[in-house]
Design a protein around this nucleic acid. Structure first.
Lengths: 340, 340
DNA sequence: ATGAAAGCGCTAACAT
DNA sequence: ATGTTAGCGCTTTCAT
């Protein structure tokens, strides 16, 4: 392994000068600087992150906690976050929580506390009191995206309003029987399904419609579960809706496939709306509430890096404010055929 | 921040003893051990990875390089690899290459060389000579999964045989006009599409069939591209195949959707096979060649950790040998209706 | 079984 | 502008 002393010797300077020349901190003569850089490149020298980290107290790495890498949304956040980090010369340490309770525990009690990162980004993380305490105890800046944890800075995502907007789009088209494929309550402290249902109910109310328990189904955010839920809704003539709002695009796609399977035309016989603007949404002609996971990931990184730079970063636009979302109308929604 | 000295003081021992008690290396009296552990827990002490890393020369972290986290396959490998790592107390540093050429460069020239990891896992990585040299120069054990790089240990995935098997399944059912939706050549050094086409051609040959250029389409591994490719194949009556082999499940699903769109029944009018056993394959009734990305990720980790333990790990079953795959027959394939 | 002391490979004060 | 020196927070000899 080639160390800083090797470079120093080869360049005829001291280790301190090599460090200065390579990090850009402190002053070095232009000429020496060039020479050191060139020698370092020749030798293939790259400063050890471990040693530099110990010396500076900063690791040039940040940790990202995601509920499940396999979901398109989280992978998208991750991808852009990583790009942003690489540009800043930061490594990305991943903590995927989707792997079972046994691993989740040690992430919170051990891994996060080893001080390997300068800060944390938590995506859609909803934690209990204990985990929240653990997160605070790490003692590093934490930026949350869409899973508000008391005491932590959050890029908030207005789930209620997104749902209200989606539902209102259907109501505005004249739909009266609007079904909901919501998220299963499932995990404790996972509030997203609840918020999205609230938005749905709010829109109904604003449009003078009643919540009808027969029009409520739940799914697990997968295509299959959306398909199943839609099957229930669409095969029972007595309760058949004219429109379905699924709280994720993946479930909405499942609903479209179910409708097609039953020989129903979308949107003539049944309208479908989702949330996310999944990479396949356009392909399915799915009307949806677009979120921008990549942009959210990139922004979270920018805010976190700014905080690390000493800037507060807290008063940045986009911190307290909600993340943008847009209704994107495609071909899966239309006025109901029985519209009067 | 609570350091080892704090624990030492509180437990009435020296820092050395704390270290021994907590790492399990060296000998400590049973009683002292218990006391130290308890005090450490009370204080919320976790040894700094940076300091421990500098002292031991090992970081208890491994790096994983993936072509694109957003693809189901890679996310699945990652998920299980992470579980395995967490169980072993290792952190996972992610290097996603899907973010553009500008970031890819610094991963290979800088990030990987900072010595933040004890070893590397490269998934489906196909690199040029320069990047390969860079990888070797890291000087750490590397385990590749399915992207053979000269000089590195590889869990090999027999793409040729998987394709041959898929195609042979169709031929055995009596199909004579079997189309291929292959991978676009696209990226340099990305051999997977080529290998899968070779397997396809091999099966045709073994079944006495000719390769017909009119039956060859390419896609980019997405649902959309599979849909488009299938549309080309199925709308031109003069060239219409009775079966389609798509080299990924996502493209195969696109093909099924295209067929349905055209009013063709699957499998009565057209059979479709894919590769992967994607999480949605069952939902689509897709016959496919199952791969086990999770198992591959877990195994790669096990082999790497064993190598780090000093064990060679090289002679383990599963290292040189191919990863398992299986033909899973569902409802998307059947004998052609014109079978004689 | 335990403590004292010497680093691990850097960076950052402090001199010059 | 550059070199010298003193750590960063651990682990690991080497004594005892």
């Amino acid at each position: 392994m080639v160390g800083i002393e090797d470079v120093a010797r080869a360049a005829g300077v001291s280790a301190a000068t090599v460090s200065r020349a390579l990090t850009g901190r402190g002053s070095v003569a232009g000429l020496t600087q060039k020479r050191v850089v060139s020698v370092a490149a020749d030798l293939g020298y790259v400063a050890s992150a471990t040693a530099a980290g110990l010396a500076t107290g900063r690791s040039r790495a940040i940790g990202i906690i995601v509920p499940m890498v396999r979901r398109w949304f989280y992978a998208s956040v991750l991808e852009e976050a990583q790009n942003e980090l690489i540009r800043a010369g930061f490594d990305l340490t991943l903590y995927n929580l989707g792997g079972g309770a046994d691993t989740r525990g040690s992430v919170f009690t051990q891994l996060l506390h080893r001080g390997r990162t300068d800060g944390l980004i938590a995506i859609s993380l909803e934690v209990g009191a204990e985990e929240a305490r653990s997160l605070l105890a790490v003692g590093k800046p934490v930026v949350c995206v869409g899973g508000p944890i008391a005491g932590l800075h959050t890029l908030s995502v207005d789930d209620v309003e997104m749902s209200r907007l989606a539902t209102d789009h259907l109501a505005s088209l004249g739909h009266r029987r609007i079904a909901l494929i919501g998220g299963a309550p499932g995990q404790k402290d996972f509030h997203l399904p609840v918020k999205r249902q609230v938005g749905y109910e709010l829109a109904l109310q604003q449009n003078g419609l009643q919540v009808d328990a027969a029009l409520l189904e739940t799914g697990s955010f997968s295509i299959e579960s959306g398909y199943q839920a839609a099957m229930h809704l669409l095969t029972d003539d007595s309760r058949r809706p004219t429109a379905i709002f699924a709280v994720s695009d993946e479930m909405a796609m499942g609903a479209i496939l179910a409708a097609r399977h039953l020989g129903l035309r979308v949107p003539e016989d049944i309208s479908v709306v989702g949330i996310d603007d999944h990479e396949h949404a356009q392909f399915f002609g799915l009307t949806t509430i677009a979120q921008y996971p990549g942009a959210q990931g990139a922004q979270a990184v920018k805010i976190l890096l700014k905080q690390l730079d000493g800037g507060a970063g807290i008063d940045d636009p986009g911190d307290h404010t909600s993340q943008p979302f847009d209704l994107i109308v495609r071909s899966s929604t239309a006025a109901p055929s029985d519209a009067r």
